[in-house]
Design a binder for these strands. Structure first.
Lengths: 219, 219
DNA sequence: AATTATTTTTAGATTTGTCTAAAATTAATT
DNA sequence: AATTAATTTTAGACAAATCTAAAAATAATT
């Protein structure tokens, strides 16, 4: 069975949203896809008929095994192409997303496998996101230094660079701990300080030294 | 202005057909695109409104300057991707066409230019067809040895490898001369003889020696 | 618990590209 | 030149994906 680009984009959006939540709501999807709730409802019926997801009226949606497999295939292609664009064609890491959004819908299975081999079977894309292998398996999310987290990418604090009491005191004061979810709003090149935003709090700035002492994983 | 994949495929088909003919007919286009004449008429009206071609009822169609420019851009992408698939990803030359049909519709201008640079600005694709440069200019059609002509590709005899009377006698007997249009129907690996078909004639076989003495250009 | 607010679904319309069948035009043939 | 044949266009319908506006269901609040 084959799927339209629109259908694939729905499946991919649901896949990403259900990482965070469990079930995905119609409105969430509409916002993610820049469309209207009514359109989402129509499409969900169609995708249910194709057995890509389980969906009950008013109860949200969740991918089936088939849906997950399809989503992983698309994510695989997206991230391989991003790797190709940055690594082979010398694109900047911040300008590849749009292009990969198009390339991910190219259907040839053989192309994907040959591209993967040519690139040397990379495990992570240029944003640090893991690339699923041909069976849909992907490496555990990479822990990266907070200073390397891309702007506006939600992440969760997963470790600290030292156990010094000075560091822990500072973290306690700023209400940052393992599991805290945050994203970077701005980076200031003058002193390499960064402005971060924690859910339900006002944004605030932290120093380069502190940022370098924190490890996060993208969620 | 941007164009749908369908619109691009129409423009490309018209471009290829008008190389041979002058004006392109509705039925020719319908056959080329595996669709119906009525659908073609509808689309031609649309493309005329977008100023990509000149079209008068019942009188066939011809690309405008804008249309030609668009067509050359698509052909450029198609042939660059074919080159990439064969040269970089080690595809066979006979299995890249379908994939390139999809890749040619990727929109990023920057991608095309970076790909072109990465490949070293190739002048001909794996089938011997010239690749338009970023301004739409392409090298004169390459003269290739008849023995290297792909099967079912229409070509025109453009030169002979020697002026020997023996060769010319044979050519005269077989009614082959400069300008003769032909295509290869079969290649026999046993003796490297090939079966060729000239318009309005029955197919017949010629020897490896004769094929190697003939140069053709793809039309 | 009853009311209000929010979310989700339905119903009907729109756009793009396609189709069939019939009408109009052009080309071919007697 | 008149008739037949082939091509092309029009008219109306259909499927995919979307939208708006109204109805239905769920969630939140008093």
């Amino acid at each position: 069975m084959s799927f339209s680009i629109t259908e694939e984009n729905y499946i991919k959006a649901i896949f990403h949203l259900q990482q965070e939540d469990g079930n995905v709501s119609t409105n969430e999807l509409a916002a993610e896809l820049h469309t209207k709730a009514a359109s989402v409802t129509d499409m969900l019926k169609k995708l249910k008929a194709k057995k890509l997801l389980s969906y009950e009226k008013y109860k949200g949606v969740r991918l089936s095994a088939d849906g997950k497999k399809l989503a992983l295939g698309i994510v695989r292609k997206h991230r391989l192409w991003e790797y190709f664009l940055v690594d082979t064609l010398q694109f900047g890491w911040d300008e590849v997303h749009e292009v990969a959004e198009e390339l991910e819908h190219i259907t040839s299975k053989k192309l994907v496998e040959k591209l993967d081999a040519f690139l040397g079977h990379p495990k992570f894309d240029p944003h640090g996101d893991p690339i699923p292998d041909s069976h849909g398996k992907m490496a555990a999310q990479q822990h990266i230094n907070l200073i390397d987290l891309p702007i506006n990418k939600m992440a969760e604090v997963s470790g600290v660079g030292s156990q010094s009491t000075e560091l822990l005191e500072l973290l306690k004061h700023k209400h940052i701990g393992i599991g805290t979810k945050l994203e970077i709003k701005k980076k200031f090149s003058f002193d390499n300080s960064i402005e971060i935003k924690i859910k339900n709090q006002n944004a605030f700035t932290i120093s380069q030294q502190l940022a370098q002492a924190l490890f996060v994983k993208i969620v």
